[in-house]
Amino acid sequence: MNKVRLDHAHLHHLLRQMIRIRQFEAKCVELYQAQKILGFLHLYDGEEAVSVGVMEALRPEDAIVATYREHGQAIARGIGMDRLMAEMLGKLEGTCRGRGGSMHIFDRATRFYGGNAIVGGGLPLAVGIALGDKMQGRAAITASFFGDGAVEEGEFHESMNLASLWHLPLLFVCENNLYAMGMALERAEAETELVRKAAGYRMAGAAVDGMDVVAVEVAARAAADRIRGGEGPQFLECRTYRLRAHSMYDAQLYRTKEEVEAWRKKGPIVRFYGWLLDNGLIHDEEMRAIEAEADAEIEAAVAFAEAGSLEPVAELERFVTMDRVPA
């Protein structure tokens, strides 16, 4: 059994990962307000424990399919902040040469297959990646991240069925943040216990407190172990909350300030940091050091991105069709 290490180094690593994501996005907000980042910007604030915890259960050979709210997955997976920030700024040095932007981060080296702006649209892709790996005898699993909104889509149900029917090495990670844009879960789903959807496809499912990074890691490792052990696809519902607007502009008429504040108090970073403090596993100055380290990394990433170049317009149509399959 692939147990979670609760040693000092690992716990600090989890905290550092969440802080890197949180601060990276805080910088993105600044750059958005300065109109250096354009278009849509969907922030992961409040949900960091999910991608950080799940990513701990994955190996380099595994594949990831994410959503348009994927900065957290990208950072936790190990994609460099410099290339991420360059992508945000639409620069040639970005992960996708400035063609994808915030919602479409792709990275071949880490098997990161996007960034998908169609709710549920990544799920069938994940089925196929898992199928392709399995047919080629690779010992890899695919983790597909999606939100509660995707559960409303037919593609979710088709994909759950196909993955189970074909016994694919696929981890379904539902980031249930209770709202599909402004649509509250209980107004959209007849069955709000999303983990119960798995049973309809004879798939093992578990629900976990998505605000607790250790709990997410434990659950993700258990699910990944079962997949690697040949038990077929697994469904993991991570119950979490989006503390900011859906995208940058959102009057949030669909929820109260009190509700958001209540969730903020149980946010994944404040809660984990508090637990570490209570248990004597961190000092305040260590926390300040982690924050300073993340800030320095982000400043370097911004400098890299700002110094980046623009793809020549002559290259506009390049890669619309490919002249070879990249090796």
Binding site: V127, G128, I129, L131, G132, E158, N161
Partner: peptide, 27 residues
């Protein structure tokens, strides 16, 4: 294994074809 009957799930099996192609197959 190579001649796969699918359920009536056009979106899932076409998307699975795209995914399998991404993973190195020729569906």
């Amino acid at each position: 294994e190579r001649i796969r009957d699918t359920p009536l799930s056009e979106s899932a099996y076409v998307g699975a074809g795209i995914g399998a192609a991404l993973a190195g197959m020729r569906p």
